[in-house]
């Protein structure tokens, strides 16, 4: 019996046990490509009886055997997903968590599969009909507002550090420290960090943030978000951190005139977010957090290139990511200029 076959049987038995089904018939099982940190599988079963009778289209998400510094365990990610689901955010419904590594060799959880595509470039170029773009942009604002209703303290998210209330300054310190472990000098990033420090706003609030909320990380079908994915960077943070990440130039996939992820325009996003949250969006703060987003992406890109350079993982994709730095650096300098002035400290 092949490994895949053993895995699918073990998963079928697990579902039978958790759902109380009399029998679970495996219809399809397939490993999904990509993901150095996680292994994901498409899994389709037919349950006889139990709490979820009938055909179930699922995704199984587990730790990959070669474990890199995972930012979150599967159990933690499951807890975040559960809370987002309960808050009314459109996410794949999380069904069952298994922390017993004896079942398939690693911890995993099972969620419902959502239809659509998440491919950023495709969505920006042709995957969203022009007549749907406005509504989709508004939905992105509503989803985020729902997520941001989750606030500390939340006992089920006790593993998320609460940190300082001054999130912007905390991030600056984090990214400076990250830059220290990169051998290449990056004067532009140092300059931008100073600017971010000097212009840091006090946190407007501390809420549950997704941490990677951008085009490419939500599934879309027929112009509607069907599921927000990739929750492993969730944290307690300033809600503007998510808004800035979503709008940053780096995540527009070439459609620079559509400031919201290459899909739509800020007035739609801000208006929908404000209506759903009861909090007005301050556009200047979003611009600030976009610079923070580009700085963060720059640091991540340098770290990825470093993995190639150090010989830890030879990869053309990682190598080329390192050569994207000038794009981010140029955009950050221009954005700082347009926000107002150079690095002279505010009065």
């Amino acid at each position: 019996m092949g490994t895949e076959c053993r895995l699918s049987e073990a998963l079928g038995d697990f579902i039978a046990q958790r759902s109380g089904a009399e029998a679970v018939h495996v219809l399809a099982f397939e490993r999904m490509s990509g993901g150095a940190i996680q292994s994901n599988y498409l899994f389709t079963v037919d349950c006889r009886g139990g709490e979820r009778p009938g055909r179930l289209e699922l995704v199984v998400r587990s730790d990959a055997p070669s474990k890199v510094d995972a930012s979150m365990t599967r159990a933690q990610e499951f807890a975040v997903l559960r809370l987002a689901y309960e808050a009314g955010v459109t996410v794949p419904e999380p069904l069952w968590l298994c922390e017993d590594t004896a079942v398939i060799g690693a911890a995993f959880y099972i969620m419902k599969r959502v239809p659509g595509t998440a491919a950023g470039r495709f969505l920006v170029r042709e995957g969203v009909a022009p007549e749907h773009a406005g509504a989709l942009t508004r939905q992105l604002g509503q989803e985020l507002a729902r997520l941001h209703t989750v606030r500390p303290p939340e006992p089920r998210l006790g593993f998320l550090p609460l940190g300082q209330s001054d999130r912007a300054k905390e991030r600056v310190a984090e990214y400076r420290a990250a830059l220290d472990s990169i051998p290449q000098p990056r004067p532009v990033l140092e300059y931008v960090l100073n600017w971010l420090e000097d212009h840091a706003p006090a946190s407007s609030d501390i809420v549950l943030c997704h941490g990677d909320y951008r085009t490419g990380n939500y599934m879309v079908r027929d112009g509607r978000v069907t599921g927000i994915l990739d929750w492993e960077f969730a944290s307690w943070s300033d809600p503007y951190e998510d808004l800035g990440w979503l709008c940053a130039r780096s995540w527009r996939f070439g459609a620079f005139d559509k400031e919201v992820g290459g899909i739509g325009h800020k007035p739609d996003l801000f208006d929908a977010y404000a209506q759903a949250s009861g909090r007005r969006v301050e556009p200047g703060l979003v611009l600030y957090w976009e610079v923070m987003a580009m700085l963060r992406w720059s640091v991540i890109a340098l770290q990825q290139a470093q993995r190639h350079l150090s010989g830890e993982e030879s990869s053309l994709e990682l190598a080329l990511t390192g050569r994207m730095l000038p794009e981010m650096e140029y955009d950050m300098l221009r954005q700082i200029e347009s926000i107002g002035g150079t690095n002279e400290r505010p009065a």
Binding site: P187, V188, E329, L333, I336, T342, N343, E344
Partner: peptide, 12 residues
Amino acid sequence: QAALHGLLLTLA
């Protein structure tokens, strides 16, 4: 600082 900004833009 303004000259620095200009220099960094040139390098980028």
